[in-house]
Design a protein around this nucleic acid. Structure first.
Lengths: 106, 106
DNA sequence: GAGAATAATAACATACTTGTTATCGCAGAT
DNA sequence: ATCTGCGATAACAAGTATGTTATTATTCTC
């Protein structure tokens, strides 16, 4: 399993950091899946919910939550949006051109 | 078609802004697809590339580029990552708890 | 007008994520 | 030991994005 202390501090993913050098796309996908998994698991533990309870809150079944927490699949944007609504999680997708200078939003 | 002047200024998407009130998940998906479409089209026009040439640069076929620029499908993270590498586009996926400073609201 | 290049679309196969049900192992409580 | 809740996994159906080829309309050039 994963330590809870690390779950609290898990913040965000930046695709550029992950995709930077020699990392494979496979690892990118697992990295995103892992980050989402940590968020879901953290929320669930923090709120003292069972997978079944959280599943009901998200409008899905317990195995779906288990699969999310497993972090083996790359979640869809639809899934992310679903989590954002159900868990109060915010996710930002910033698409900026690399050549026209860095955005001030970052 | 789309005006080029707007393409330059198209910056980023924030899922929270889009998903905020009564917008459907369907529109979220199209919004992301549209943003990616604008980025791809902007890059292609700025560099004076044909869809075929850009497709070769990205390692795919011309209809795939056309489909991306059409913006009807929600791109996968794998596709985004592919674009990021091929076009030099940066995309950040930030997953943060809802109230960035405060803990567990909902 | 003929020809070439470009962009859009159709059509199909493939891969992957998700939805769902059933099941299994495990720990706690009675 | 039994029962109950929890979490993980298997297995299958369904939806969707992608890979790919072929085709069509359009525009530009000669």
């Amino acid at each position: 399993m994963t330590k809870l202390s690390e779950l609290r501090t898990a913040g965000d993913i930046r695709a550029e950091d992950l995709a930077d050098d020699g990392i494979r796309a496979e690892q990118i996908r697992t990295a995103l899946a892992h980050a989402v998994a940590l968020r879901v698991l953290a929320y669930r533990v923090e709120h003292g919910l069972s997978q079944t309870a959280l599943a009901r809150q998200l409008g899905m079944q317990q195995p779906a939550v288990a699969r999310l927490e497993a972090g083996d699949h790359e979640p869809t944007f639809s899934t992310l949006e679903r989590l954002a609504r159900g868990l109060g999680i915010e996710f930002h997708i910033d698409i900026t051109p690399a050549t026209s200078g860095l955005r001030d939003t970052a």
